[in-house]
Design a protein around this nucleic acid. Sequence first.
RNA 1: GGAUCAUUAGCUCAGUCGGUAGAGCAACGGAUUCUUAAUCCGUGGGCCGUAGGUUCGAACCCUACAUGAUCCA
Length: 506
Amino acid sequence: MIFDNQYEQQRIQKAQKLKELGHNPYGHNIKRDSTASEFLRTYAYVRDLEDRKDPTKEAKVCGRVKFLRHMGKAAFMKIEDQSGILQIYVNRDSIGADWFKEAKKLIEVGDIVCAVGYPFVTKTGELSLHASKLDIATKAIKPLPEKFHGLQDKELRYRQRYLDMIMNKEVKEVFLKRSKIVSIIREFFEERGFLEVETPMMHPIAGGANAKPFITHHNALGVDRYLRIAPELYLKRVIVGGFEAVFEINRNFRNEGMDHTHNPEFTMLEYYWAYHTYEDLMKLTEELFEILLSKLDLPSKIPYGEFEIDMSTPFRKIKFFDSIVEIGGVPRNILYDRDEIIKYLKEKGLEADEKASLSALQTELFDEFVEPKLINPTFITHYPIAISPLARRSEEDPEIAERFEFFIAGKEIANGFNELNDPLDQYERFKKQLEAKAAGDEEAHEMDEDFIQALGYGMPPTAGEGIGIDRLVMILTNQHSIRDVILFPAMRPLSKEIKEIRKDDK
RNA sequence: GGAUCAUUAGCUCAGUCGGUAGAGCAACGGAUUCUUAAUCCGUGGGCCGUAGGUUCGAACCCUACAUGAUCCA
């Protein structure tokens, strides 16, 4: 039996008793005519009345019982709905002596109830509902955690997010804000003529990013499929097809480790804009942040942990190699010398892979000495072409990609570039990736011949950008773990569950 | 992948030197018709994460494993 705990058994019996008394503990079609906060707003005037009550009015409010104080022949309870919390006053004479006596035992903290009554102000000054009727809406058979400290255990909070939401108000606020952020972004792109499209989540070839994919199997076709690591190659096919401004907000899946900035499934915004350049994307990114801040009522300086992030635009721009020198403090004369970089890394007490390519070592310098220092929003531009397999080459310097990455609080938030639309160059770059893969780079791209074909029909000059929604939400809600901005973050199965699964396999 | 810490009642947490397992909230019984984490009196509730080991004796010491957190890679 799943509910075999003593408290749960008690509550199951109470639900049964309620049923016997004609109060369905799981009734349906229960309507209310006011939320808690509407009640408080509508009847705020009662505070100014002489006897501080208005029995001519009546409202029905429903919510979960969060506090319950029995006072003999009266009781106070606080009920909470999505809008807020409202105090209900119940006494024997107003709801009937028999029912009062039963309800006192059968309705408890955690249950969802409905109360009908008029507004009044208590002696201690709280606007409350004076109940003439009280009924159960839904009986909870599991008790809530302790009312003062709430639910603290992080593991339980993530595994049982519903309980976390019931107990910790701030959690609901974060996810409310997340929802608003996504909605603002959608509106932002729609207003500018972008079409929202949906592209496959199951790919025959995992492309569009350097990452390890999840593999699944399509029985009907007898083929393996990859959960997408990025929508990029499909969105560009859509551009080839003639939609000139598109975006998609959806999940990507990467079969990699989990930590406070990585969840195996995460949400990305990607958008592609024909006849625009990555310079335009940077401008659009700044505009998007201006609008996010203003619609979320955030100041231009927002707190993030120990930092204060200055979000005023325009954001700082600096070239990749300049940032390594000016922000990272690395001597410029070693930047293109593998041996010198390895020597430098070792001097700084870091491990250096002797076999690493020059571009990998340059990236290492950036990751170590620059990225953590990019607290205020910063665009890093002019990336080496070797680490930008899908980006267009700069005309002035073929070793540099027309690309930027965008950082806030030492985290990569976005990545954008002029899209490579030369099919032959793209073909060569895929071949290079295949060589890297053969040499052991598990995250290198696969060859996608259909994508090359699509480019063969001609993709107009296009720029595209991906923005990590989870990390963006982290910055804007001052949360430091990606798990705190994902309702149901990935968790290891409990050991019991593993045993069950293994049993089923046999 | 490595290091450190945590895991004790439904929840939040104590637990001394290795010697009968503790509190608050919640629950149960009672008092209380204006309480605010209500208050007062009384009662019950434990696989001390799991499995081994050391010991006359382990929540406590040792080992492995599981899960989580933090830091590092």
